[in-house]
Computed example of a mutant assay.
Amino acid sequence: MSTSDQQAPPRRLAMPELLIGIGLLACAAAVAWQTLAIPVSPLYSKVGPTVFPYLTMTGMLVLSLLLIVAALRGGWQPEEEKETPTDWKAMGFVAAGLVANLLLIHPLGFTAASVIMFVLICYGFGSKHPLRDALLGLILALAAYFGFARALGVNIGAGFIENQLNSVIDAIIGMARG
């Protein structure tokens, strides 16, 4: 039998990959829905509080469509990866991080909840350096918080840490002006 007589196996629908693409598409729809609910003052000219959520939603939409197309073409995972068992313990830490963020953002504030989420997710991905992860999570969370709070004027969940830092920043600004 020659190589021209052999045919490649027909492409199959990769159901797990398709579900990931559809899930990401649903997340993009949720971002769009929630972004439409953000009140926008007519004082904003072009850049307002909805610019970054719309950019995020657009990126999620494009990625979800690419994932769905890849799944319809047989998936993106190599065959040997499809045989790898799911690490449920790692998946549990990632899920715990996301749930912890959801439950703790109101009582503790954005920064503390984000640091806890970051450490749990890093551990789920195999990190064995929780102090380094907490410090990196703190830097990223503070940058995100102050980017939204100070630059865009959007409160994404001030807690003890944010309130203390805001007091220090306001005092420094007050001394600089006076």
Rank of each mutant, 00 (worst) to 15 (best):
S2Y: 14
D5K: 13
D5G: 12
R12I: 13
A14I: 09
P16F: 08
P16A: 11
E17H: 12
L25G: 12
A26I: 14
A29P: 05
W33I: 08
W33F: 11
L36Q: 12
A37K: 06
P39V: 03
V40Q: 02
L43P: 01
V47A: 09
Y54A: 10
T56A: 11
T58M: 10
T58H: 04
G59A: 11
L61F: 13
A70E: 09
G74S: 02
G75I: 00
P85W: 08
T86H: 13
D87S: 06
A90S: 12
A90L: 00
M91V: 13
G92I: 06
L98I: 12
H106F: 15
P107M: 05
L108H: 07
F110S: 06
F110Q: 04
A112Q: 03
S114F: 09
V115L: 02
V115F: 00
I116D: 07
C122K: 08
G124F: 00
S127I: 06
K128N: 08
R132F: 05
D133T: 08
D133G: 05
G137E: 02
L138T: 10
A144D: 02
G147Y: 08
G153A: 04
N155H: 11
I156Y: 00
A158L: 09
G159E: 03
G178I: 10
G178P: 11
